[in-house]
Nucleic acid binder design. Structure first.
Length: 367
DNA sequence: AAGACGTGGGA
DNA sequence: TTCCCAAGTCT
């Protein structure tokens, strides 16, 4: 029996975490490290906001180059707000969750039009921006404005569920995890605390095989004490992904121009450039080819898996005359066509079509 | 309020 | 190959 409770309180946990962060903070282009921070350097709210939008459901590794290109091209919120929609969507292509890019522009324009080009300096103010939810608002408020807001992302959920041995499965456990995370948020250095929690989750308290031997919070961790660290957080089982099918029409004009269309704002790949195609509900779909031509089956299927379904698209190609008049989409001159401006699914379609055009089958060569 | 919404990398 | 997942938000 102990006559004193030796389990550390929340302040001790955060203090220990910050000591670890001072030594191990990862370097990121949008981050002001703990040392620079102490020297008085402040992060630019625009860069923090942009990075946090990009980081939603997306790995740091995937974000790095996109962040660099965006900030080189649009160094501040005024520049971004003034950018044409198509330029921003093309620059976002490949990063996924394209509603983020549409909301990014709306958000930038709101900051300029409604807030004189200054980001709202509080969590509640930030929440009013499109694309900014509870996570992003708390992240920007704490990192850029020193507000002691509690940041809860997937990393924090994992760290907290282990630290307090929360056995309730996600997403039901979310409110409790948020409440527990809030008990750890310090008044001083809340932004570094938030980033430390996320770094810890990303490097030590990882989903599989957490490296407890290197964890600064191991003495405090109930999950580890119970031998449950690898089991937590528990999660509700996921639904099976259905397979959907459809067809893609890729037309190349004699002068090299390619037939593309801008997809509707709503729905999959909303607002992005893509090849005309059928619906993905059933093979063949109701929609006809975007123009009359000698459509050739490539015999190659594009396979792509989204968050909630698998997709298989049959690719058809046609080489058409310069006078061809499409019923859907418009021809983009070859010099202006960059596959990189397409979402990944559509890039795959282009790879198939380009190969089919370069290497027609024997039969077609004879024809 | 449950489902829609991308992608690439690792096991 | 297949599955899981990563710094969520919107409707």
């Amino acid at each position: 029996m102990r006559d004193t409770d030796e389990s550390p309180d929340a302040g001790d946990i955060s203090a220990r975490l910050l000591v670890w962060y001072d030594r191990h903070a990862r370097v990121m282009p949008w981050r002001v490290g703990p040392a620079e921070r102490r020297a008085g350097q402040r992060p630019d709210p625009y860069r923090v906001w942009l990075s946090e939008i990009m980081l939603q459901q997306t790995t740091v590794a995937a974000v790095r180059d996109y962040f660099r290109r965006f900030t080189e091209r649009w160094p501040d919120v005024e520049a971004l707000a003034a950018a044409p929609d198509a330029d921003v969507m093309a620059e976002w292509a490949g990063l996924g969750y394209y509603a983020r890019a549409r909301n990014l522009l709306k958000g930038a324009r709101a900051v300029v039009a409604l807030h004189g080009g200054r980001f709202p300096g509080t969590r509640d103010g930030l929440l009013s921006l499109p694309g900014v939810g509870p996570y992003t608002a708390a992240a920007v408020a704490s990192i850029a404005f020193d507000e002691p807001a509690t940041v809860v992302d997937g990393n924090v959920e994992r760290v907290v569920s282990r630290l307090f041995a929360v056995e309730t499965p996600l997403p039901a456990a979310k409110p409790e995890l948020t409440r527990l995370a809030a008990t750890l948020t310090p008044q001083e250095r809340p932004g570094d605390h938030a980033q430390a929690m996320m770094d810890l989750g990303a490097t030590i308290c990882t989903p599989r095989k957490p490296v407890c031997s290197l964890c600064p919070l191991r003495p405090d961790c109930e999950g580890h004490r119970a031998g449950l660290e690898a089991e937590l957080p528990r999660k509700a089982p996921k639904a099976e992904k259905p397979v959907r099918e459809g067809r893609l029409w890729i037309a190349v004009r004699a002068d090299g121009a390619v037939l593309l269309e801008t997809r509707p704002e709503r729905g999959m790949l909303g607002g992005m450039l893509g090849w005309p195609g059928t619906d993905w509900d059933r093979s063949g779909g109701p929609a006809g080819a975007p123009l009359e031509a000698d459509w050739r089956e490539t015999g190659v299927e594009v396979r792509h898996t989204f968050t909630h379904f698998h997709l298989r698209l049959e690719v058809l190609v046609a080489q058409v005359a310069e006078a061809a008049l499409p019923a859907r989409g418009s021809f983009v001159p070859r010099a202006d066509f960059r596959p990189a401006a397409l979402p990944t699914l559509m890039r795959k379609g282009w790879s198939v079509a380009a190969a089919a055009i370069r290497h027609p089958t024997g039969e077609e060569r004879l024809a």
